[in-house]
Each structure stands twice: as C-alpha cells, then as structure tokens.
Design a binder for these strands. Structure first.
Lengths: 116, 116
DNA sequence: CTAAACCTTCACGCCCATGTGAAGGTCAAG
DNA sequence: CTTGACCTTCACATGGGCGTGAAGGTTTAG
C-alpha cells in the first residue's frame, strides 16, 4: 500500500503520514523504487495515532509507547504499560490546568466587560 | 520615573516593559541621556495592560484600543468603544472554543484510560 | 572613581502538529 | 510517451508573551 492509498483510506494527508514517519511513530517499508510501502494494518495504526494525538498525546510520547498499541483493535494495552498510564494521568492534569487557566481568563474578561 | 522604578512599582520585569514598548502599548518619554522616562500614571497603565493580557487580549489588540483605557481607574471605557466590546466578545467565544477542545481531549483521554 | 543601572540590536527557546512551497528528480500505469 | 503519483531536503508559518543571553557602550548615583 502506497502513501496515497493510505491517505485515502485513513483520511490523513500524505504530508501528515510523512510527518509521522519523521517522528518515528509510523515506519513503513520501502519498495525497491523507494516508495513508502504500508501494511494493511497501518490503517488501524494511523487511527490509533490520530486518537492519541486528538487526546493531546504528543508524537514523542506516542513513539515511546508504540509497543503499547493493541495490534488488533483500537485501544491501548494499559495493563502492560503502567508508565503509559502515568503519562496519560499526567496529561489529564495538564488539561485540567489549562482549563483552569481559561476559566481564569474568562473571569477577568467578564470583569472587563462588566466593570469596564 | 525610570524603567527599574516602574518595574519595582508595578511588579513587571524591565524586560517586559521594554517588550510593551516594542509592541507599542506603552510609550515612555526619553531623558536626554536616552533613558526611558515613565509617567507616574504608567503604574496604573501597566496594571491595565496586565489585566487585559491576563484576560487573553493580545498586545496587538491592546494597542489598537489604547484610547479606550480609562485614565483614572482600572477599567475600560466600553461605552466609547463598541469595537472593543465586539473584540472582547469574540475573545470570549474563542475561549469557549478552547474549552470545548480541551473537554474533547479529556473525553478521548478517558476513552483511552478506560477502554484501552 | 566605581558600581549599578541603563541603553541598543540580534535572536533563540518555549510548545507542537501540520500546511505550504520550492526545486529537482524518479517511477508506474494506461 | 505522458501524466500523475511519488521521492528528497530545506525551511518557514502558525499562536504569542515573555525569558534569556551576548556584546558592547553610556549614564547616574554615591
């Protein structure tokens, strides 16, 4: 499977797929001509990656826990990867912090709109 | 008043005060020697700027509405600046959007932590 | 006189996934 | 053969308010 096919099949741009390779989260083989050669299972792989990115997990972190991605289905094998769980917990905290920051801004903004 | 004094009086670093000048939101005079010469009222001015920044208003926006900062007190003269109100409303929306994004991430993260 | 405070410009680092574009060249399918 | 899909590298833009440092020079206060 070449990059264009995977792009079409996964809904992710070819540029992004190359980016994932640069980041080491997706490592296709190569044809003799040098074309990226993706496995059929990479469609699922890409979906997993997208899910994690959409959850706020950076590619650097994803790379570190590639072995924790379930081969068959969508999810993550947390029971085998306590470190990953810790990572995700930490991320959740950061999200909470960001949320608080936004709420703080909102309050100050309300102050400006009201008392201003 | 020189930059160090204003920094001490306002609790803002000299570096930041220079930054504000670069961004055009604070325009001190100059002594003959070339030192920045701030007015006493700039202490309040800086506080207003900080408040707006803390609310998420960018320096570029602040610069556009400098005339809308109240001379005496803390607030903003919204009644004279309908455009500023619109700007702040827009910012509020963006904050809401950011909040939704974070909540989306949080949900996906929960999905990973639960079903993973 | 000396030390501290000030001045300037230039510029990278943070945080990060992607888009974009250029520029030049190769390969595969019809 | 032609065309479109692919390859490479280099690199900048986005959102932004700072921190930081270098490097060299001037001013003011005591």
């Amino acid at each position: 499977m070449r990059i264009g096919e995977l792009a079409a099949a996964s809904g992710v741009s070819a540029r992004a797929l190359r980016h994932y390779e640069e980041q080491g989260v997706l490592t296709p083989g190569r044809t003799r001509a040098g074309y990226r050669d993706y496995a059929a299972s990479d469609v699922v792989r890409v979906r997993q990656i997208r899910t994690m990115i959409a959850a706020g997990v950076g590619t650097a972190t994803i790379r570190r826990y590639l072995d924790c991605l379930r081969d068959g289905g969508e999810g993550v094998a947390l029971e085998l990867c306590p470190d990953l769980r810790a990572e995700l917990d930490g991320l959740a905290e950061r999200l909470t912090a960001q949320e608080r920051e936004i709420q703080g801004k909102r309050q100050r903004l309300r102050g400006l709109l009201a008392g201003g």
